[in-house]
Computed example of a mutant assay.
Amino acid sequence: MTVYCIGELLIDFVAEKQGSDLSKANQFTKKPGGAPANVACAIAKLGGISRFIGSVGKDPFGSFLLKVLETNNVDISLAQRSKTFTTLAFVSLAEDGERDFVFSRGADKKLKYDSSIKKGFKGNIVHLGAATALLGGDLENAYSRYFFDALTQNAFISFDPNFRGDLWKDEEEVFIKKCRTFIEKSHFCKFSLDEAQLLSGETDLEKACEVLHEIGSPIVTVTLGSQGTFISTPTTKTTVPSVRVSPVDTTGAGDAFIGCLLFQISTLNDPHQILKNTTLLTEMVAKANRAGAITTTNFGAIPSLPTWEQLSDFE
């Protein structure tokens, strides 16, 4: 199946090894980024088929980003170019790989809905994993309409809220309300622990997942960093351990995880069988954990994403 990834493609200006405090950072390195774009590249690098739907500026940064996706075998035929400058994110990293983010939004919010894409969703996977998609404007309108199209075309729908505190200061309740619409109808949702707690209103992990199931999603995964990933379905709750690495940059680890998981799902005759086959789901999550771990061992999300050969060789 083809995996359609909808949302932002941006430049990460990374202050490497200068601590997770941007106010103290002096030097930055340009890296390609954006959660949906990372997922698209993760799928393509593993040998899957991914198509990116998003907007970048008609500027050198936009050209650079589209070239990166194309080089990584992502289909960019549905990408749009805007007169607005390409979106930028400034990221500072501590020694343990943890991050401090500041966004300068630009062209990502200018994505226009294209009704001709709808028919391509049928029998495929639609991944809604944008950090900026629920902030209003053209992008949110397009995002919501593509979500509806995916529902009407019986696509397998994946949702990752990608909460960024810098984008939702004092507006967390708005974020929660908007996300619940997607959780209600998505077949699979991926959260960090903080996101699961925020969106459920529960601090206990199992209780949080119960609330998320009550909202609607039948399959929930909660990434726990070095502790692995918690899987929750109506019949199964288990933690799949991760592998030990020495992280240098955690940017994109969650995207590598979900990209690897969606790639594996895309190879199934029926993606819904992972709900019925928890052994298969657990095996898939174990591989996805490895993909996330590998990505943290180098700087920059997209350059660090593994191929299937690298994933198979990694212990």
Rank of each mutant, 00 (worst) to 15 (best):
G54P: 06
G201S: 11
L22H: 00
H127G: 02
L212G: 07
E95A: 14
E70A: 04
Y113Q: 10
F147Y: 14
N277Y: 04
A25C: 12
D313N: 09
R180K: 15
E98L: 02
S304V: 11
S226G: 04
F147E: 10
E172N: 09
V222C: 07
D108W: 13
E171F: 13
D21Y: 10
N72V: 03
L199E: 04
G259I: 02
K185I: 02
G54Q: 01
A130D: 12
K45P: 04
G201D: 00
A40E: 11
A130M: 10
V240I: 15
L46G: 12
E315Q: 10
E210N: 14
D12F: 08
Y113N: 14
T267P: 02
D313Y: 01
G165K: 11
S312P: 04
K190T: 05
N154S: 15
L69I: 02
H127Y: 13
L281A: 03
P241F: 03
D59V: 10
G123T: 00
L135R: 13
P306Y: 01
Q153G: 00
G129N: 14
V68Y: 12
V220K: 14
C260I: 01
D313P: 01
K177Y: 04
D96P: 11
G19W: 05
C209Y: 09
W168S: 12
R81I: 00
D96E: 10
F90E: 07
F182E: 00
R180A: 13
G123K: 06
K190C: 13
Q264I: 02
L305T: 06
N277K: 08
K178D: 10
A25I: 07
K122I: 04
S246M: 00
S217I: 02
G106T: 08
A288K: 13
A130T: 12
T295H: 06
K190N: 14
P306G: 03
M1D: 07
E309W: 09
E173A: 15
E315A: 00
V222Y: 09
A208V: 02
D194V: 13
T267H: 07
K67I: 01
G136V: 09
G48P: 03
L135G: 14
K178G: 08
A286G: 08
G48Y: 08
W168A: 11
F52I: 08
A107V: 03
N277L: 08
D170S: 14
I302S: 00
G106K: 06
G34M: 13
N38W: 03
V3K: 05
F101Y: 12
S23Q: 14
W308L: 11
D96Y: 07
E315I: 05
K118I: 01
E210Y: 14
D194E: 15
L212P: 01
G57H: 01
T267E: 15
A196I: 06
S104L: 15
L65Y: 08
D194K: 15
S312A: 09
W308P: 00
A253Q: 03
L198V: 04
H272F: 15
Y143M: 14
F28A: 04
F28I: 08
T233W: 07
L199T: 09
K17I: 08
V68W: 11
G201H: 10
A301P: 04
V39C: 10
H127I: 03
P271G: 08
